[in-house]
Design a protein around this nucleic acid. Structure first.
Lengths: 238, 238
DNA sequence: ACGGAGATTTGATCTGGATCAAATCGCAAT
DNA sequence: ATTGCGATTTGATCCAGATCAAATCTCCGT
């Protein structure tokens, strides 16, 4: 992680960082007070701008983090430049691949975000020591695996229109607003294309097609409203 | 699982089934002698024919199993019949999705296979009791997640020729022969198409193209030899 | 060996999405 | 307000892979 690209907000020194304790999914209820305190002494809360690379593909996994705000995209790039987003993570997901030296993907903030960073060694020690943390990370890994496999079906077998509708549905499900019929897209058209295995032109055309069909309204480039969520769901063949 | 479709080989009664102890990846070294014995008393070694459905999509997860021989495909089917293979599993992989009631995918023997089946409740209890088993299943989940994400790149961004070469490479890597330059395909052309998000015609054409280029030899429909593994690898853009 | 049915290959044509090209939009800096 | 530039949309054309159609091949049962 290039510290110069993000702004360090807080370096906790003697106690666990309070805002993190409450919001960090995998640690919630998994660690003792003493462990939280130790983790807090070594954790770093960071604010990262959209586009900031948190983990580089091929780099060493020397730290892990939790997302406390914003959206993070997981991306794989081929040597000729083709790339594929292989996962989106939202607060309070855990970011990183325990027990493997080199990262096979990059993690990049898709929106402005806040993360809480822990050193690799400390976290791996705590995983081995603490059954509940192991269980919690295992559960997240299984959920991500389910999501990845669901997305494999989308990538392999759905049409462009179904792909775009699937993505809108996914984002709506994670939107923080209570209504979730209106939400901001955390991704640019190019990123959407990289997630769906399409080109930006096709993404754009399918969005305008959904707009013309009345399934969505494009309030502005990054903001969508869905008058009838069922109509959107019907665009995705089960 | 429809018992009528498979043949029960052994019902272990008073000791853990010996052939399983040695070969079951996730249990190897993870369970105590007493636990292995208990597991053995409740496990069932089964021989399943190619095509036998081990877990049905949408069914209740009422048991788990380990593969002791053969290849199992994980498959998702859409209501209109389109389908996508989302994973291949080889001995000694663990099959099943702990902690979730309903299966979101089906597991089917791709080749004749042998599996060892355990009841859900027993296994989930042992996972909670036994840190080492939890760790071992966590590790498998993370490996499967890596594989799924690698495959997402293939599905979203590689060409048909690259996809077919990727699959051959994957299968060669899991082939049991020491040389691994000659191997049997565990999948039919239709299954390959479902794995790669292609049609059978395209798969067939790409295979004959690789044959004409001298990258592979098709000894017979299910048996391939690769004279030069590097030549095959070069067909897959990194 | 013979028939037959499914699996695979091969051929001809079509098409969804890619590519190439050109507006237009959005917005930050002046 | 004006300029400039990257992001997005829209249009025209192309092509990889799908679809439709027809041989072959495999292998099983008789």
């Amino acid at each position: 992680m290039d510290v110069a690209r993000g702004e360090v907000l807080v370096i906790s020194t003697s106690v666990a960082c309070r805002s993190c304790q409450a919001r960090h999914g995998v640690f919630c209820g998994a660690l003792s007070a003493g462990q939280l305190s130790e983790l807090g002494r070594h954790s770093l809360r960071r604010k990262v701008d959209a586009g900031c690379e948190i983990i580089a593909q091929g780099s060493e996994n020397s730290f892990y983090s939790n997302i406390t705000r914003g959206v993070v995209k997981l991306c794989k790039v081929m040597s000729d430049g083709r790339q594929q987003i292989v996962g989106l993570q939202f607060a309070p997901d855990f970011v990183g691949r325990p027990f493997v030296r080199e990262s096979t993907l990059s993690a990049e903030a898709a929106t402005d975000a806040e993360i809480c960073v822990f050193p690799r060694n400390l976290l791996e020690r705590m995983i081995l020591e603490t059954r509940e943390l192991q269980r919690s990370l295992h559960a997240q890994a299984l959920n991500e695996l389910d999501a990845a496999r669901e997305w494999m079906l989308t990538l392999g077998r759905r049409t462009a229109e179904e792909k775009v509708a699937s993505l809108l549905h996914l984002i709506a499900a994670h939107a923080e607003t209570a209504t979730s019929t209106a939400f901001d897209l955390p991704l640019s058209r190019a990123e959407i294309a990289d997630f769906l295995g399409l080109t930006i032109e096709t993404v754009s055309r399918q969005l305008t097609r959904l707009r013309k069909e009345g399934v969505i309204r494009i309030e502005n480039i990054r903001h969508i409203t869905v008058p009838d969520m069922d109509a959107l769901a019907k665009k995705i063949s089960g």
